[in-house]
Write a protein that binds this DNA or RNA. Structure first.
Ligand SMILES: [Mn+2]
Ligand SMILES: [Mn+2]
Ligand SMILES: [Mn+2]
Ligand SMILES: [Mn+2]
Lengths: 224, 224
DNA sequence: TCTCAAATTTAGTTAAGCCTAAAAAAGGAT
DNA sequence: ATCCTTTTTTAGGCTTAACTAAATTTGAGA
């Protein structure tokens, strides 16, 4: 019954967890989009996940899918693997922060509990990954993390970058090239209402950087 | 055509490589034994491996299987992964030498070229794994390694341990507990012809250790 | 040479996880 | 209420890599 935790199952659960955080639930098409499979494949897998004992997901009539506590536990285990691996690849093996997500996506399903424990020790039981995302603890509690979106700030407000969505390597390279990295402090110096562009002056940088909403919606901050 | 390199295919090629080293070829039942699958499954896979372009193995019905140069290249790539990973787990993550084989068996199929390169660098481009087995170089040359079996030594001969078969964790723990580890020098102090038992006095150890043929056949040495 | 047990292959299934095409169900707009 | 578009499910199939059971081949000993 616990051997049902195939790579595919783990990726579905992780995806449902992420979507539920953002939307409260996960729809068939959203899941299909993220995992790059056909919607019909999602229906098939979701059926399987409701049929396990204990069930790993709950289907709510017209409201998509949410994880059961059991499903969430599995998702958090995989997310812990993923984020520890990202940090390990970055800190110990010298990967840049745009390269770690893809490799961690594969390794997360394969490493043992021992491997997880050892890299956590080597890294000093870290609380956040290279993109600022919180790493669930060993008993799967989630450290605090910022939820305020950069797109909501306006000129003259100051803050610090806390967290950046990690799935687009090109964006990550662009951001780090311009000093937009976790812990960087900044002042908002401009806002254009037509397109939502924000201008930021990062402390210690010469030039301000202009970011569109596609970008500012993927960055989370703390206000000063 | 190169996407045919599934985990299963890689494990078959690695197994055929190992068996060919020892027996010149690999029989269906030998492969089935090592991989713990049914002989019929081996026949099926072997057929698939002869049908690729280029073919990865050469096969005559009922006469066993050998790798083609292409198949050998793939096998050596996986073996490089495996042995680098073993050393990395041991040196960097503090695994003991009996724990590394199982974990490396899973990870070897998943790590990228970049991961391989990085751990090789961190380890200083090592030539041998924790059990003394040679690590193929980046261009898949095999460093020299001892082929003289400990079971062939006789009293008063001196030598040094070079290499130990790595698949039995219990044996590995027993050996390291008694100082039988790569680079250890020793003198043979006894031999019993009935059972082939050898008595070894390891330099720096108080007590001699008696090893049966089941053990001495899995240890390779260099004579002094 | 013949016989027979061991080794190997063939044939037919299974399970996972994906696919496409078509049917059905929602839900917004008229 | 009806239409229409989007979302979701159903139905049927494919591929990979296992399995079991039965058939076949091999090669060693009588
Ligand atoms: Mn994954
Ligand atoms: Mn991340
Ligand atoms: Mn393996
Ligand atoms: Mn080894």
């Amino acid at each position: 019954m616990r051997d049902l935790l195939t790579h595919a199952v783990e990726d579905y659960l992780k995806t449902i967890y992420d979507l539920s955080l953002n939307y409260g639930r996960a729809s068939t098409t959203q899941i299909a989009d993220v995992l790059d499979v056909a919607p019909a494949s999602v229906t098939g897998m979701v059926k399987k996940l409701t049929g396990t004992t204990p069930p790993l997901v709950e289907y709510q009539k017209h409201r998509g899918v949410v994880l059961t506590p059991d499903g969430e536990k599995v998702a958090l285990e995989i997310i812990r693997h993923h984020r520890l691996l990202e940090l390990f690849l970055h800190e110990t093996l010298g990967y840049s922060w745009d390269e770690v997500d893809a490799e961690a996506d594969l390794l997360e399903h394969v490493i043992s509990d021992k491997f997880e424990q050892r890299i956590a020790e080597v890294l000093g039981n870290p609380t956040h990954d290279p993109h600022g995302d919180p790493i669930p603890t060993r008993d799967l509690e989630i450290p605090s993390h910022a939820t305020l979106c950069l797109s909501h700030l306006r000129p003259d407000e100051r803050g610090s970058i806390q967290r950046v969505r990690d799935t687009d390597p090109e964006l990550l390279r662009y951001l780090s090239d311009h000093g937009v990295v976790p812990q960087a402090s900044f002042t908002v110096t401009g806002f254009t209402s037509f397109d939502g562009n924000l201008t930021l002056l990062i402390d210690g940088q010469d030039k301000p950087v202009v970011l569109g909403t596609r970008i500012t919606q993927q960055i989370f901050v703390e206000k000063e």
